[in-house]
Each structure stands twice: as structure tokens, then as C-alpha cells.
């Protein structure tokens, strides 16, 4: 409940304030957001499975975001930045889909 509330507050603040993304963060922010969405999807699935744990969520959230950003940073340094960020997005997309499928099965029994 607190998490949902935080999400809404965050979106509202982000829309209300016209924040500029700092240049050094610009390549990583989209990936980080997708990684965080993946962590959120995993947490929702765990919640429905009845095995949700706050600490696990926090750690997985932070590590997801950091790993994704690090991969992209590494890719940029190696000169394969755009390819590697595509790869990260694809993997995260697959995970989000599979988590969403589990959630769907739990919620709708189908």
C-alpha cells in the first residue's frame, strides 16, 4: 500500500516539476526505469505467491537498477552501448512478461 502510494506521489512530482535529466544520467535512466519496473513486477508476483519480503524487494530493486546501469555503462565504454542496452531491454522485457504471466495466472486462475 505504501509502495503504491509512493509510486503515485513520484509520478505526480515528476509530472509537476519539469526536471531535466542530467547529461551523464541520460543514457542510463531509461534502462534503470525498465529495470525498476521489472523489480516491481517480480515483487507483485511474490506478493501474490505469499512470499513477499520487504528487504528482498529493496535489495532486488537497487541491484536490478545498478546492474542494468552498469551494463549500459560498460557497453558504452566498449563501444557497443546501443546494442547492449537493447540486449538489457530485451532480457528485462522477457522477465516482465513472464512475471506478468504469473500474476495473471494467480489473479484470474488462467
Amino acid at each position: 500500500m505504501i509502495a503504491l502510494l509512493g509510486l503515485l506521489v513520484g509520478v505526480a512530482v515528476g509530472l509537476a516539476t519539469q526536471t531535466d535529466v542530467p547529461a551523464f544520467l541520460a543514457p542510463y535512466l531509461p534502462i534503470a526505469v525498465v529495470a525498476a519496473i521489472d523489480a516491481l513486477a517480480g515483487a507483485t508476483r511474490a506478493l501474490l505467491d505469499g512470499i513477499f519480503d520487504d528487504k528482498v524487494f529493496v535489495v532486488s530493486f537497487v541491484s536490478n537498477v545498478l546492474v542494468a546501469a552498469t551494463l549500459v555503462f560498460l557497453g558504452d565504454q566498449l563501444g557497443v552501448g546501443s546494442q547492449l542496452s537493447t540486449a538489457v531491454i530485451v532480457v528485462l522485457g522477457i522477465r516482465i512478461f513472464s512475471n506478468a504471466a504469473s500474476i495473471r495466472r494467480k489473479l484470474f486462475k488462467a
Partner: peptide
Amino acid sequence: PSRAQIVAGLLCALLGFAAATQVRQ
């Protein structure tokens, strides 16, 4: 709410903020 819950809420707020900012950008 436990500390972990508050941190999770803050992280979610951060996610919402980042997503909204990115969309604007």
C-alpha cells in the same frame, strides 16, 4: 510500517519520478 516498507515506498516514489521525468524528456 517497518523501515523496509518505507524504503520500498521511497524506491517506488523514485521509480515513478524517474519514469515521469524520462517520459517528459
